[in-house]
């Protein structure tokens, strides 16, 4: 990628990401009044991550079978409140093992 278009993308990316975090922190001091907005904000972190994860996770390894096994491992470990590191490494390990067997 050429350097000038990279820096243009980076500026937009980092600029928007900083503003999304900073503007509410620097400006908003009061509680949000709208019940709809408060509810919307309550759900948005999880719906974003859900929509990013599914169904893309099943096509992240080149084999739907190994990806499904890795997904099952991640769901199970997350259900029992395991840490990010454990969930990420264990699901990768499961995919590694399945790809050796199949």
């Amino acid at each position: 990628m050429n350097t000038s278009s990279f820096f243009l993308y980076l500026a937009v990316m980092a600029g928007v990401t900083y503003l999304v975090r900073a503007v509410p922190f620097l400006l908003i001091r009061r509680k949000i009044e709208s019940r709809f907005l408060r509810s919307f904000f309550r759900y948005i972190p999880y719906t974003v991550l859900s929509a990013m994860t599914f169904p893309a996770i099943f096509f992240c390894t080149g084999s739907v079978l190994s990806a499904a096994a890795g997904t099952a491992a991640a769901l199970l470990l997350a259900f029992f409140d395991q840490s990010l590191l454990v969930v990420a490494m264990a699901s990768s390990a499961v995919i590694w093992v399945v790809s050796l067997l199949v």
Binding site: I57, T71, A78, S91
Partner: peptide, 10 residues
């Protein structure tokens, strides 16, 4: 994706 699952599921 596994990291996201670790945030969503609990």
């Amino acid at each position: 994706y596994a990291m996201f699952i670790a945030i969503i599921v609990p």
